[in-house]
Design a protein around this nucleic acid. Sequence first.
DNA 1: ACAATGATTCAATAAATGTTGTATTATCGA
DNA 2: TCGATAATACAACATTTATTGAATCATTGT
Lengths: 115, 115
Amino acid sequence: MLYYRIMNETQAVSALSALAHAQRLRVFRALVVAGPEGLTPSILADQLDVARNTLSFHLKELAHAGLVTIEQQGRNLIYRAEYSRMNGLIGYLTEHCCQGGVCEVSPSSAICTTC
Amino acid sequence: MLYYRIMNETQAVSALSALAHAQRLRVFRALVVAGPEGLTPSILADQLDVARNTLSFHLKELAHAGLVTIEQQGRNLIYRAEYSRMNGLIGYLTEHCCQGGVCEVSPSSAICTTC
DNA sequence: ACAATGATTCAATAAATGTTGTATTATCGA
DNA sequence: TCGATAATACAACATTTATTGAATCATTGT
């Protein structure tokens, strides 16, 4: 029972690069906490005290890496964390752990499978 | 029963930056697969076809981020993946998921707890 | 139609990161 | 002690990434 798809190296580097920045990491974690409801750029900008054009740039990076999704609602955009992508990244990092020995990664390593 | 310690933002960004590079990611994954025995820089350099000074630079980055440990054995160094750090990073990324609702992260999200 | 709001785009500058060749340090074995 | 091997450190250059302010695009409400 797999809840995600293991990604390739390019996708993993892209996701890791996207998260390897303090502001983007804060944005992503805020979206993880927000859950399925998601957040708008305005709310995020206020909450995290980031300039809106800067935030827009960083959200684009996260979206390009597949870590967040965008839905338009009127003149607002709703950003949401893409849990399956996050789980795919975790799977990529831990794949074939310890040569398939005692530490074998089980599908239960995935998080947020119900989102 | 916690197998890792949730890290702070600086540590998380450091770990993510270290992994956000194709060669370093390959190195880390090779060490994850190698398990507790670890690998020497020579073996890694041969296996991954990287110049030794370049590999040394990248290993230093991984070590600085706490993702690998170093043990000296004669003139060889043994590098090992630091599983607890990896688990700490995963914990940091998924903390308070979905406002503690249906997707609450359980300690079982940690991987390689027996390493 | 028009002003206001939400959000993104662009271009220029500033800052951080990666690569390469060379040099250095330390250990091993004859 | 000397040559060979394992590994790291340094410096110069090239590349990538981040920030900022101003401009643009789209939607809503009057």
